[in-house]
Amino acid sequence: MKKTIPGEYGRTHAVLLPRDPTCLFSYWEVQPQTLDLFRKQFGAEVINSSRPVLRVFEVDQQSGNGGRERLASEIAVSLEARNWYIHVKEPGRHWFVELGLVTPDGRFLLLARSNKVNLPLGRVSDVTDLRWMVLKEGYEQLLGELSGAHRVGRGSLEMAKVLSHRWQMLTGSGFSWKKP
């Protein structure tokens, strides 16, 4: 009892996922019916004459700004690519994307808006609470060198890589056993 997994699920939508402090991943699906609707509304040539883009928005979460959105970048994509890795300049922050078409006269036609995603800051926080005391000399050393935060990810993938590398070196072929 099993179905073949389909290439599409019959809807037009975009999803955004976090990867690391400065990288997001978006995938999307666009139904032919949605494009037909656009043709009806904006003219038969609208799809061919427009540029598909991903608009990347930053959401300002600072208090007082009420989640104001700022267009951070616009990336030319191909609808058929169906996914995209998005590199942002500043680490951390809150993001969402809009997939759409930019018409020759500069209008943006929205196909789908993604969920919102928070990215990690990737560095030691500037926030120190009331109970915080920056008295210890060498505190930065505690956070950096002593904790070894620069040596992240010592784990099974590293071991798999080391073993795989050794195996290739020893035999010149891939190795069959993995997981821990």
């Binding site: 800051l121 560095r123 030691v124 926080s125 926030v127 120190t128 956070l143 070894g148 992240v152 990810g153």
Partner: peptide, 18 residues
């Protein structure tokens, strides 16, 4: 957590990962 999960938490961890 991995090391930097705490180290880059907010506010700063007073005792690092210790």
């Amino acid at each position: 957590l991995e090391t930097h999960g705490l180290i880059t938490g907010s506010p700063r961890p007073r005792f690092g990962v210790y």
